[in-house]
Amino acid sequence: MLWEYLRKVCLRECVSYSVSIKSSSGDRLAACIRGQGLPSLEIYALDNSGIQNSSKVSTRSSRHPSFDSSASRAEPRISLEAFDTPKAEVSSCKWSLCGTYIAVGRNDDRVDLFDSRFIKHGPVSRMFHGEPIKRTPWKSLWGITGLEWVEGAGNAQQALVSGGTDGQYYELPINTSDVRLQVVYDYGIYVMLTLFATSLPKWRRTSGVSQWAISANDKPHWSCE
């Protein structure tokens, strides 16, 4: 039954992923940075017109995307939660298909989901890999090995799928047409957080996936034990 479900997801993803590749050229770049202090998630605005905003372009005026370096740092910028160990790092950073959410996977088993419109409010959802079975007990860090957004997962318009070296994958279905989700943003932060929590979908865990990847020809490949 699991395999049948995964096969259906893969078939849908074959179509959706080719679409996402075609449109994967947006105007913003998310970067996960480690430096002195806490790690951070930074959003850079990319200037596709170049000439109109040439005063903000750090190097030559060009018709190519350039960093808006009018400020030395990107805006907005948010500090991520500190890693538990020095060797930890962010392993994956993926925008949702709708361009609203940013998923950050870390090799300390954590996935944080940010809303790009309210990124300074912190993650809107968080989950951990690693329970209950350690598939790789010799590793102190299991880690998130990959994040992918898929379209049309069940009743949701899109879902975030995270794979980890604990041999499991989780999915977070998100329905961006949820009226409550859209309306609450128009009201204050406190109202938004309360209502948002009630409308957030729950992570679902499925065992048995040992590895997964997107192949070079854009066709997702799942490997099940």
Partner: peptide
């Protein structure tokens, strides 16, 4: 400019 160690990058979909 020098910003620190870059762990991961993600590009937004077009037009967002």
């Amino acid at each position: 400019q020098n910003i620190g160690e870059v762990d991961a990058l993600g590009i937004s979909p077009q037009g967002m």
